[in-house]
Design a protein around this nucleic acid. Structure first.
Lengths: 138, 138
DNA sequence: GGAAACCTGTTGGTGTGCGAACAATCCTGC
DNA sequence: GCAGGATTGTTCGCACACCAACAGGTTTCC
């Protein structure tokens, strides 16, 4: 019967949750208009242009049920607009509105600053190391 | 007008969300009885003994509203029990049940294996580096 | 050409997370 | 000894996040 101790504070899942908490708080403080997930959707739409809702979800790492809620809330704010795809009647095309594009552009620098603030306790080299290691765990 | 590009895939928040997703999926597969947050509560109760509900929340990085829901669901499963504190009538003391203690002990090794699986793409040295860097961002 | 397989979006249910507001209780300072 | 302030737990509302089940539409492949 093994009794390896379970050090909660050293578990990767617990650390991820706590760092995420801190990051979300910094983001919400800096950019109150939208959430991190909503901003990710704006970024991808700006980068890739109009996308079907499910495809947009895959591009932003959200399942079909989640992306629907996010798109609905963005549409309610007038930041994206949806339209049926004439070529495939199952699809719903999601596009940035002028307002959504404007908000995204206006907040890019702030959003990059949020990432910097989150990583503030680390040196430049350490930030790069962390980013690289995390990218290998996706 | 600056136009620094916004590389979503390199933003710390997006990376944290994706790595967390992968970790939660591995955990749910390996330990279907409870969630990661519920397991964290079991771990802290096992480590510290009975605690007031709010204090337990602080020890597991959850606010008062969140810890209440988690404790309620654990109580519904019979893994923890709550009792009023005779010395302070505001307080609700939360304690592991025998069943909760047994489940926690029985799943410790599996839970440590979940952390290993999450970190599987990294070498031992890289895992330590990542854990140390994340710990400095809490 | 038509059945099977697949894909798209929707809905309902469960479980975090957090802010804000509230009532009850406890503590502090005068 | 008591008024003001702090703490504890609760509730409500909002926003992810995922599973499972479903209905329609499209593709594949015989």
């Amino acid at each position: 019967m093994s009794t390896r101790p379970y050090a909660l504070d050293e578990q990767i899942g617990y650390l991820l949750r706590r760092v995420t908490q801190r990051h979300l708080a910094i983001f919400a403080q800096a950019i109150p208009e939208v959430t991190t997930t909503q901003f990710a959707v704006l970024a991808r739409l700006s980068e890739l242009g109009p996308q079907s809702q499910n495809h947009l979800g895959r591009e932003t790492a959200m399942d079909a049920a989640t992306i629907k809620g996010v798109v609905d809330r963005l549409a309610r704010q007038g930041l994206v607009a949806t339209a049926p795809d004439p070529d495939d009647r199952r699809r719903l095309t999601v596009a940035l509105t002028a307002e959504g594009e404007a908000l995204f552009r206006a907040r890019i620098d702030t959003a990059l600053g949020v990432s910097d603030s989150t990583l503030a306790p680390l040196t430049e080299a350490e930030r790069q190391t962390l980013t690289d290691l995390l990218a290998r765990l996706t």
